[in-house]
């Protein structure tokens, strides 16, 4: 189980959290920078893990 979710090759390029509520320009959640950017590593780790988990639940597509 752990191997299937965590120990996979490949890279998460980016995780954009939230969705843009603005009809004129694109926004990004900078709350992740509150710790000087250290939280971004955690963000991509969690985002990648959730992505692997979700894709494993639904094959195909």
């Amino acid at each position: 189980m752990l191997e299937g979710v965590f120990l996979k090759r490949g890279k998460v390029i980016s995780v954009r959290t939230g969705s843009n509520p603005n009809s004129s320009s694109l926004g990004v959640d900078v709350t992740w920078l509150l710790g000087g950017g250290a939280l971004v590593g955690l963000l991509t780790l969690v985002g990648g893990t959730l992505t692997r988990w979700a894709l494993r639940q639904r094959k195909g597509g």
């Binding site: 996979k8 490949g10 890279k11 998460v12 959290t17 894709l55």
Partner: peptide
């Protein structure tokens, strides 16, 4: 949760995509 994740080719290959 609300998010958009972008991944590279190897990530997808490792998921059998």
């Amino acid at each position: 949760p609300e998010m958009v994740v972008t991944v590279d080719h190897d990530f997808l290959s490792s998921m059998g995509r």
